[in-house]
Nucleic acid binder design. Structure first.
Lengths: 219, 219
DNA sequence: CATCCAATTTAGATTAATCTAAAAATAATT
DNA sequence: AATTATTTTTAGATTAATCTAAATTGGATG
């Protein structure tokens, strides 16, 4: 009954990419996300379709069924709970937990996750600021805005990032820009969103590319 | 560079079965331990031999090289540390943690295990009473004796079990016989080691088959 | 020491997940 | 609408791990 790691990873990728109104995701988008060939994706889509975890028609892309959605959301839940554990309990840093959680999320035991969730105090957000779905798959929403949207003079608190890449997180960590930090925008270039801001009394410069992926709750 | 789950499981099985003086393990013994066919074992032994993790000669059995031993011992370390976490931190029971730890032990991150060990306070024994190798692969030894070796009137403390099977652990749990419990032997049948003993004021009867797998530190 | 038996290995297939290269379908552009 | 370009699928192979059935080896036994 259990799915393979590969099958689980495909479901997660489809969930992540389900941005369009009908939730349809293209073969190539999945291939890019999972860094694999389009041919492999086609094979797997057929299999997942047979298992009724996605709906799929040749050349028309795929979307999650409710079963598929439930499974994928649960993977996200497990991933984020483990990230909380790694940071909160084990004292690991923001930027080093993603890859480990990527492995831990596949551990099969509902009871384990239930106990972990309780142990961590039913956290609603992970260390990147992303919401953790509850056991029923419901998210707590939080109003957040990319740093690039703030005008000079505006203040706020870092509540998360959009990118999950280790190198990106490491970069932010080195600059002292972690979740919970208070910031104040000094300048915000109209053309390319190059920013300068105050953090912990220091002044910091960020490219628009970086700032676009830092999410802020304004104060 | 990393090994597959299958390769890791073979190394662990060989370590577990390395009882003979030269540490040699037969193909069939491994097949039985891993519940697989002898033919599959032969295939894998060739592969592990190519990787210099075991020494292997056709028809002569296999034994771990120092590299193989290091890897296998580290798996045991990870398994037992996770068991401590599941019981101590998450409040799971003795008998339900083995299968989960069997999955968790394959997670790849030295730093994770280092932090977990620290978080747990560098435990020396797992919830079954088995010693946890340190990062250098060294065990803390503890004098223990099977329950069947105790004579009527002798007392002791349960410090572990030999069997890892869930059904066995569940059975003991139901009888209230967990690690740390003080016991006193009332009778011990000469012929088949059927035992009666006192635990928590109650009297308990155990078959020799069960008692043989319960390890005691005499007091 | 020849024979037999159990243990082990080889041979040949199978399944899951992947790949490259070629074919087919869809989408974009003149 | 016809042609071109892109996307997607199919075809055919490959690798890892497994299986069953047949062949082989090594040791035990008469």
């Amino acid at each position: 009954m259990g799915l393979s790691y590969a099958e689980e990873n495909y479901l997660k990728a489809i969930l992540k990419l389900s941005g369009s109104p009908d939730g349809t995701v293209s073969t190539n988008a999945i291939a890019a996300q999972l860094d694999t060939s389009a041919a492999s994706v086609t094979d797997m889509l057929k299999k997942l379709s047979d298992k009724e975890l996605i709906t799929y028609q040749r050349y028309k892309g795929a979307s999650l069924t409710s079963d598929g959605q439930r499974i994928a959301t649960n993977l996200v839940r497990k991933h984020r709970l483990w990230e909380v554990f790694l940071v909160q309990s084990l004292g690991m840093t923001w930027d080093e937990v993603h890859d480990i959680a990527e492995e831990l999320e596949h551990i099969q035991s509902d009871r384990l996750i239930e106990r972990l969730d309780q142990f961590l105090g039913h956290p609603k957000f992970d260390p990147h600021g992303d919401p953790i779905p509850n056991a029923q798959g419901k998210y707590t929403l939080r109003v957040q805005v990319p740093l690039t949207a703030l005008k000079p003079g505006q203040e706020g608190i870092v509540i998360g990032v959009r990118e999950d890449e280790t190198s990106f997180l490491k970069h932010l960590n080195e600059k002292g820009l972690t979740v919970g930090k208070s910031i104040k925008v000094i300048t915000n270039d109209d053309y390319d969103n190059t920013l300068s801001l105050h953090v912990d009394g220091h002044e910091l410069n960020l490219s628009g590319k970086v700032a676009r992926n830092i999410m802020i709750k304004t104060t």
